[in-house]
Write a protein that binds this DNA or RNA. Structure first.
Ligand SMILES: [Mn+2]
Ligand SMILES: [Mn+2]
Ligand SMILES: [Zn+2]
Ligand SMILES: [Zn+2]
Lengths: 128, 128
DNA sequence: ATATAAATAGGAATCATTCCTGATTATATT
DNA sequence: AATATAATCAGGAATGATTCCTATTTATAT
C-alpha cells in the first residue's frame, strides 16, 4: 500500500477524536487541511483503514460511524443527541460465558448502553 | 390510531419471525397477503409500530432491521451471513453496574456478540 | 348514509454510500 | 535526475435505502 497524504490525514483525524464521527464529519476536517480532497477519497480510505484493522466502524441511525479506538471497549449512546462515549465495563467478559448461544464462534463483543447523556438529561435542546 | 389491515399484517409478520428482517423482506411478505401494498406503507407502519413500542429497530450494515421481540435480550451476529440470533445472557444486568459511565442515565442495554454461526463455521458459502 | 380525518398506493425526492474514469503522484528502477 | 508504472486521486454519476408528497381510498363516529 502506497503512502498518501489523504489517507494519513484521515487516520490522524480519527485517532485524535473521541466523537465516533461520520464520514462527512471526517471529510470536513480533512478539507480544512487538504481543501481539494473528495468525499469519495475519504470513504475509500476509511474503508482501507478498516480493512487494515486500524480503525473500526458500525452503523448507527442509518449512517456509518467510525472509531479510531480499536481496543476492546463498549459504548454509551445518548438517545437524544446521539453522543457516543467509550466506556470499559468491568467483569463482563468473564461472566458472559454463561448464556451464550450454542455452536457459535464468538469473536468479539460489544455492549451498548442507551439512555441520556449529562447534557440531555438536564436540557431539552439538542446540543451535539 | 385507526385500524388498518396493512399495519396489522406488518405487525403479525414481525411477531412471527425470528429473523430480524429488513423493511424490504417484510414488504415481500406483506405483498403475498396484500398484493397492492406499497413499500412506503410498510416503512410508515414499521415506524408507527416502533413509536408504539411494540417493535424495535436497529441499523446494521447500513440497513434498518426490525425485531418483533421487545423483551430485553441480546444478539449474536454472524459476520459472514449476517444471521442475527436472540440470546439471553445470564447475570449480566447485575454485574454491569460496575464500570458504567458517570452522570449518564442508562435506559437500555444491548450486548452484541459477533462471530460465526453454525452454518458459516463449516461452510464457505453464504447461506442466509 | 354521510362526513371527516386517517391511511393508502404510487412515485418523486433525498441522502449516504459506492462506483467510474481520466488525471495525478509515490515509488522503484535506471 | 529522468522514466516507467501502478496506486491513488478528484469529481461526478449511479445506486440503494429511506422519506416525502399527493390524490384517492377507507375506517369509524355521528
Ligand atoms: Mn469507541
Ligand atoms: Mn432480537
Ligand atoms: Zn445527549
Ligand atoms: Zn453465518
Amino acid at each position: 500500500m502506497r503512502y498518501s497524504e489523504q489517507r494519513e490525514t484521515v487516520f490522524q483525524i480519527l485517532k485524535e477524536t473521541q466523537s465516533h464521527p461520520s464520514a462527512d464529519w471526517v471529510y470536513d476536517k480533512v478539507k480544512s487541511i487538504l481543501p481539494l480532497v473528495s468525499l469519495g477519497t475519504v470513504y475509500r480510505n476509511l474503508g482501507e483503514l478498516e480493512d487494515l484493522g486500524v480503525i473500526k466502524s458500525f452503523s448507527m441511525k442509518g449512517a456509518i460511524r467510525y472509531d479510531g479506538n480499536v481496543a476492546d471497549h463498549s459504548h454509551f449512546i445518548c438517545r437524544k443527541c446521539n453522543l457516543m462515549m467509550d466506556f470499559q465495563p468491568k467483569d463482563i467478559s468473564t461472566s458472559l460465558h454463561n448464556g451464550l448461544p450454542k455452536n457459535f464462534i464468538a469473536e468479539s463483543m460489544e455492549i451498548q448502553i442507551s439512555g441520556l447523556c449529562d447534557n440531555c438529561k438536564t436540557h431539552s435542546k439538542k446540543r451535539n
